[in-house]
Design a protein around this nucleic acid. Structure first.
Lengths: 160, 160
DNA sequence: TGGGATACTATGGGCGTCAATGGAACCATG
DNA sequence: CATGGTTCCATTGACGCCCATAGTATCCCA
């Protein structure tokens, strides 16, 4: 298990703490991540979170812009400036900051959803809407790829 | 034996567990899969399941989109987010999650159907309708091809 | 070729462990 | 002294793990 998969709904307790799903913790420890790196998701009411893999991805995104360029400064500020590193307590719980909860619209429960090398944190009801929209997009994608008929896979699958 | 073939009807016990067919388990162990990776089939009341081959397939699809792109986020959310890795107990049984059972309409029994490098899990009654439809599709396909070859899996066999 | 023994699969149930959650004690800080 | 944050402990409920049973197919040997 070296990827973040599946989704989990967890509740916040009275002190605003929430348990990180055990499978996710397992991925993080083998990633050698002390804490959880996270930042607001651009264009979505969600929080990007993950270990060093996510950090590397962000670094590469920033590095793709020329040094000292306007865009690079803007991107770097938006991502690094709003990011935080949460640390887990002995029971594997973290406390989300108010700006984060505000960005995602999180009240008393959160949904963790795995995205492979990273994961996102949503307000459960908003994630539901996003998910149905996303599955619809995948269905359209499959149709466009010509994978319709009996149980084919999305890419290829031509009889010869 | 390195492919999933044939179909099996198994019952769920009181705790919601179901035995994975022994022939399928044999394929999974030589695939070095810890658990069974599975996700809802798009557009069908069924569950896609398999080992690392299925995971690789999804991974490649997602990797074909640039990081942080809108499409990639959407696809990853729909595929990774709705998937899970079931792990088998000592007797080769797994427990399907409620969302999965709900998606496939599974109540007290399931049908495993082999699809080569992966397999699907259906509610037995719904699979019957799907199968007759599929055989009809194959018949039409053969007619078009001149009624020779291509009588096997709908998505073509992979040479190894 | 037939009968018995054997191996294995599917299924049922009990028990222990771990994760999620709540709450209390303890330290730092103003 | 008050307050907020952090660490530690306790409960409960689910899940994983183990053993038991039955039915079936296979194999071996007479």
């Amino acid at each position: 298990m070296d990827r973040f998969v599946s989704q989990f709904i967890l509740r916040l307790d009275a002190k605003g703490r929430v348990s990180v799903p055990a499978p996710f913790r397992a991925v993080l420890v083998q990633d050698k991540s002390e804490g959880i790196f996270c930042c607001p998701a651009v264009g979505r009411p969600a929080i990007e979170a993950g270990g060093s893999a996510l950090l590397t991805e962000i670094e590469q995104l920033i590095a793709s812009y020329p040094p000292f360029s306007e865009e690079r400064e803007t991107i770097a500020t938006a991502l690094y400036g709003t990011s935080e590193t949460l640390k887990m307590d002995g029971e594997g719980r973290v406390t989300l900051s108010d700006p984060m909860k505000d960005h995602a619209g999180i009240m008393d429960a959160v949904a963790f959803i795995g995205l492979g090398h990273k994961f996102q944190i949503w307000a459960p009801d908003r994630l539901g809407a996003q998910l149905s929209e996303a599955t619809g997009a995948v269905r359209r994608l499959r149709k466009r790829l010509g994978a319709q008929g009996a149980a084919g896979q999305p890419h290829g699958a031509r009889e010869k």
